[in-house]
Computed example of a mutant assay.
Amino acid sequence: MKAGTHQAEALRIVVTDPIISRFQQELRYDGGAHHWVMASGWGAEEQLRAVADADVVICSALPPEQAAAGTRLRLVHVTGAGYEKIALDALSPSAAVANTFHHARPIAEHVVMMTLMLSRRALAADRELRSGQWRTIATAKDVPFHPTLDGMVVGVIGLGTIGAEVARLAGALGMRVQAVRGNPAAPLPAGVQPEWVGGNAELPKLLETSDVVVVTVPLSEGTRGLIGAGELQRMKPSALLVNVARGPIVDQGALYAALAERRIAGAGIDVWWGTPAGGRVPPSEFPFEELDNVVLTPHHSGHARRTFERRAADIAANIANLAAGRPLFNVVRAAS
Rank of each mutant, 00 (worst) to 15 (best):
3 A>T: 11
7 Q>V: 13
10 A>R: 12
10 A>S: 15
12 R>C: 10
13 I>P: 11
13 I>F: 07
15 V>N: 10
16 T>H: 06
16 T>L: 08
22 R>M: 12
28 R>H: 13
29 Y>T: 14
30 D>S: 14
33 A>M: 04
36 W>G: 09
38 M>A: 08
39 A>I: 03
39 A>M: 10
40 S>H: 14
40 S>L: 01
49 R>V: 01
50 A>W: 02
51 V>Q: 11
52 A>L: 08
54 A>N: 02
64 P>K: 04
67 A>K: 09
69 A>F: 02
72 R>G: 05
74 R>Q: 12
77 H>L: 01
83 Y>M: 02
83 Y>V: 03
83 Y>D: 03
86 I>M: 08
88 L>G: 07
88 L>T: 14
88 L>S: 12
89 D>C: 01
95 A>I: 04
96 A>Y: 09
98 A>Q: 02
99 N>T: 13
103 H>C: 03
109 E>W: 02
110 H>D: 02
111 V>R: 05
114 M>P: 00
115 T>A: 15
117 M>F: 06
126 D>Y: 07
129 L>W: 10
131 S>G: 09
137 I>E: 04
145 F>R: 15
146 H>F: 07
147 P>K: 04
150 D>C: 03
152 M>L: 15
154 V>F: 15
156 V>F: 08
161 T>S: 13
161 T>H: 13
162 I>P: 12
164 A>E: 08
165 E>K: 11
168 R>N: 09
168 R>M: 07
170 A>F: 04
171 G>M: 07
175 M>F: 06
179 A>Q: 11
179 A>L: 09
181 R>T: 07
189 P>I: 06
196 W>K: 12
199 G>F: 08
200 N>F: 07
204 P>H: 00
205 K>R: 15
206 L>T: 11
211 D>Q: 09
211 D>W: 08
212 V>K: 09
214 V>I: 06
217 V>L: 10
218 P>K: 05
219 L>A: 05
221 E>H: 11
223 T>N: 09
226 L>R: 14
229 A>E: 15
230 G>K: 03
232 L>R: 12
234 R>Q: 14
238 S>R: 03
240 L>K: 09
241 L>G: 08
242 V>K: 03
242 V>L: 06
243 N>L: 01
244 V>E: 06
245 A>P: 14
247 G>R: 04
248 P>H: 03
249 I>T: 14
251 D>K: 03
251 D>V: 01
253 G>R: 11
253 G>Y: 07
255 L>S: 10
259 L>A: 07
263 R>K: 15
270 D>P: 06
274 G>K: 09
277 A>M: 03
279 G>Q: 06
281 V>I: 14
282 P>Q: 01
283 P>M: 02
286 F>H: 14
288 F>Q: 09
289 E>M: 02
292 D>A: 10
294 V>I: 07
295 V>N: 09
297 T>C: 05
297 T>S: 15
299 H>C: 04
311 R>A: 13
312 A>H: 12
312 A>T: 11
314 D>T: 14
315 I>K: 12
317 A>R: 15
322 L>Q: 10
324 A>N: 12
327 P>L: 00
327 P>H: 00
328 L>V: 04
330 N>F: 05
334 A>Q: 14
335 A>L: 06
335 A>N: 09
336 S>T: 13
